[in-house]
Design a protein around this nucleic acid. Structure first.
Lengths: 383, 383
DNA sequence: AACCGTTGTTAAAACAGTTTACCATTCTTG
DNA sequence: CAAGAATGGTAAACTGTTTTAACAACGGTT
C-alpha cells in the first residue's frame, strides 16, 4: 500500500478513499476534443537505460554525470549526447541514498503566528535562498512548534536523511533544544544570535556596534534622558543592545535608570505600550532607543497620537531597517542590519560545515546607523 | 529584531530526554582534550539490523512500520519494542526511492525581491505549512526566478523526485510556464488565481464577492465618484475586482470612466502615485477602491500628507486584510481574504491530487468586508 | 621479451527501504 | 477428515544511483 506510512493522521483516512492509481507505464495519450493528440509524457528513463543505449556501463554514465576525470573526452561526449537525447535526469533520491549528501538544508523558524510573513525573517530567508540555490541546495522550511521539538523531529530531519544541515532563525537561549544539535554534532548554524558559551556555530549582526552608533547619535543631539524599549532578555544579541545602551550612558556621565527600560515584546503594540509606560515614569525622556523597527513604529504611533511630536518632542531610533519603512511618516532613523548578507553567509558557512570543515563558526557582520527623520536635536538646544 | 518568544517553552526537560541516548547498541566515544568525554552518537541502525535483533524478517519490520494488517498484534508489539529500543528511524530516501511518494511538496513563489517577507504570501504559507505538517509532508520553497524556469527546474522538481506536487503562489496568466505542469500532468495547484480556461487546478478567494461588498459599502455611503487603484491586469482574480467595480458603478447608474482607473503595481509607492494621478484627473473623487492593502496604505499616506483627510474627504477601501494594519491610523476598511484557510485548502487538494484523485480542482472561498475607520459618509451628505 | 605504469572501463557491491510471490500453519466447512 | 480458505510470515526481487576493486589494452623501460 503506497499510502503514507508513519505519521498518518485522521486525514489520511479520506485519502485512502482515492483509488491508488496503478502505475500507467509507457506513455500516456491525452485526448483533446475527439482527436487523439499525442502528449508524450517522457518515459521514465534511468541510468541503466542510458548506459545500454550509449553502449557503455552504468558506472561510466555515472562518472560522466559527475564529471570524473577518469572518463576520456570522447566517451564523455558520446554519453552526454545520449543523456540529452533521452532527456535523462538522475533520480536524486537514489543519488542521495548512495551518496553522502542530500543537498537539502532546512530553515527552522520559531512558532510565531506570523513567522512566515515577517520582514525580518523574510530578508534573511532571501539571502539563504539565493545562496542555497547557487550552491545547488534545496531549502526545506519548518516551524519549530513545541510539539515538533518535543517529538524530536528536529533531529529526525538529519536521522531520516531529510537534510544535511539546519539554519535556525529567531531562537535564543531559552530554546534549550538547540543544544541537541551540538550534542549530536549535526551541522547547524544559529542565525543572528549566540548560544551558551559559544556552544553553537553562529553568525550574527554586530548589535553592539549598532547600538553604539545609535547612542552616539542621540547623545550628540543633546539628549540626556534616553529611554529604551528592549525585548527578549533571553537573547544574547538583544542583551548586547541593552548593555551597550547602559554603558554609553555611563560613558557620557549619565546615570542609567531602571525606569528607562521597558520590554516591548518585539511587537508594534508592545512598543506603543512600552512608550506609554516610559513617559509616565519619566516625562523628561526626549529620546527612545528601540530594539527593533516594529516597536519603534509602535512608539511613534503612540507618541503622535498622544500629542508628542516626533522628532520635535521625542526622537526615536529603531533596529533592523526593514523595507518600506523609509516611507513612514516620519521616516525612521534606524540601525541597518545586513540581514540579506547574513542569510548568505549563514548558508555558506553551513555548507562548509556539511562538507567537513570543522572550525567553530562565529562571524559578526558590521551594522550602521541610517539617519532619517525620526531623530532630531534636543528641544532645549534648538535656536 | 532577533528573538521572539517561543510559545510556552517548558522544553528544558524534554531537551534532556533527547541528549545522550542510552541505546543498547554500540556507541562512539568522542574525545575532547585529553579527557574522554562520553558523547554517545547513536550508531546508524537500519531495518536489517532491527529485523535481526527482533528475530524476524526485514519484510516484517517494514510491514510493522507501515501498520500493515497482515502483521499479528503480538509480532507488531515485539518489533515495535525493538524499534524503540534501538532508536531506529527509517531512512526516508530509501523509503521514497522504493515507494511511490516523496512526501514533500514544493511552494513556488514569484521572483519578487521581498517575496519571503510578504504578509500576503506569509499568511498563505502559514496555512500550507500547518496542513502539510499534519498530512506528514515536508515543505520545499523555491523562488521561480526566470533562470530557474528557463532551465526547466520546475519540472526537474518532479522528474528528479524532489517533490510529489507543487503549490504556485502569486502567479498569473503572464507566467506561461505554468502550462507545463498541465502538459505533463504533474500535480500542481495554482493558489489564489485561475489560469487559461480552467486549464489548471486552482483555489482562490472570491474577489468578485469582496469587490461587490466594498462597492456596495461605498455606494451606500453616498459616494458617486469612486476611483480604483488596480494592479496586475494579467491576473484573472485582479480582473474580477475591476470588472465588479465597473459593473457595480453601472448598476448604480454611474458611468464608469477610464480616468478613474490607475495601476498601482501592488506596492505602497505605486498606490500613492496612483492616488496622485487619480486626484489630478478628477478632484471630485471621494472614494478609492484599492486592489490590495499595501496600495491602500500608500493611498492614505499620499492623501494625509497632501491635505486630504481620510475618511472625511476621501474614503479608502483595501483588499487582503493583512495583520497589524488594524492598528494603522486611520485603521483600514478592507476586504478580508481567508488566506490562511486558502493555504490549508490548497495543500489538502494538492495531496488528494497526488494520491490519485482526478477531478479538476476549482474552489472559491468566500470573502467579507471588514469595516474600520478609513471609510465614511460622502461629505455633502453629512449633517 | 618480460615487466611496469598509465589510462579508461566495467562488474559487482553497497545504500536502505518496499513489494510480491510463495510457503507454512491454523481455521472452517461440506 | 480432507479440501479450501484465512492468517502470518519470509526470501528475493526491485527502486536508481555511487563507488571500489579489478582488469584489459597500450606505451615505455630494462
Amino acid at each position: 500500500m503506497p499510502t503514507p506510512p508513519l505519521n498518518s493522521s485522521p486525514e489520511s483516512k479520506s485519502a485512502d478513499a482515492f483509488a491508488p492509481s496503478r502505475e500507467a507505464s509507457k506513455e500516456i495519450t491525452v485526448r483533446f476534443n475527439n482527436a487523439a493528440v499525442e502528449e508524450k509524457v517522457p518515459e521514465k528513463v534511468n541510468i541503466r537505460e542510458v548506459a545500454r543505449q550509449a553502449g557503455v556501463s552504468v558506472a561510466t554514465v555515472s562518472m560522466v554525470l559527475n564529471a570524473s576525470p577518469r572518463i576520456s573526452r570522447s566517451t564523455h561526449i558520446k554519453v552526454q549526447k545520449m543523456i540529452d537525447k533521452m532527456g535523462y535526469r538522475p533520480n536524486r533520491l537514489a543519488q542521495s541514498l548512495s551518496g553522502r549528501y542530500t543537498q537539502v538544508v532546512a530553515v527552522m523558524l520559531p512558532p510565531l503566528r506570523h513567522a512566515f510573513a515577517d520582514a525580518y525573517f523574510g530578508e534573511i530567508l532571501s539571502g539563504i535562498a539565493d545562496r542555497a540555490g547557487k550552491l545547488g541546495h534545496k531549502l526545506l522550511i519548518e516551524q519549530a512548534k513545541p510539539q515538533f521539538v518535543k517529538e524530536g523531529k528536529h533531529l529526525e530531519l538529519y536521522e531520516r536523511r531529510f537534510v544535511d544541515g539546519v539554519l535556525c532563525l529567531g531562537f535564543n537561549e531559552k530554546h534549550s533544544f538547540l543544544s541537541d544539535f551540538a550534542a549530536r554534532r549535526y551541522p547547524m548554524i544559529l542565525v543572528d544570535n549566540r548560544f551558551g558559551d559559544n556552544l553553537l556555530d553562529y553568525v550574527h549582526c554586530d548589535y553592539r556596534l549598532g547600538a553604539q552608533q545609535a547612542m552616539n547619535c542621540l547623545l550628540q543631539l543633546g539628549h540626556r534622558s534616553i529611554g529604551m524599549v528592549y525585548a527578549a532578555p533571553e537573547s544574547p544579541t538583544a542583551r548586547d543592545v541593552v548593555e551597550t545602551y547602559t554603558s554609553s550612558l555611563v560613558a557620557a556621565g549619565i546615570t542609567p535608570s531602571e525606569h528607562w527600560l521597558v520590554d516591548g515584546c518585539f511587537t508594534d503594540e508592545g512598543g506603543a505600550e512600552a512608550t506609554r509606560i516610559l513617559l509616565s515614569r519619566d516625562p523628561q525622556i526626549s529620546a527612545l532607543l528601540c530594539g527593533n523597527d516594529k516597536m519603534a513604529l509602535g512608539a511613534i504611533r503612540y507618541l503622535t497620537t498622544h500629542g508628542h511630536r516626533v522628532p520635535d518632542d521625542v526622537s526615536v531610533v529603531g533596529f533592523d531597517d526593514i523595507q518600506h519603512l523609509a516611507y513612514a511618516n516620519p521616516s525612521l532613523t534606524t540601525v541597518h542590519l545586513p540581514l540579506y548578507e547574513l542569510g548568505v553567509l549563514a548558508c555558506e558557512k553551513l555548507v562548509e560545515r556539511i562538507r567537513g570543515k570543522v572550525e567553530h563558526v562565529a562571524e559578526v557582520l558590521p551594522t550602521h546607523l541610517v539617519l532619517r527623520e525620526s531623530t532630531g536635536m534636543m528641544r532645549s538646544l534648538r535656536s
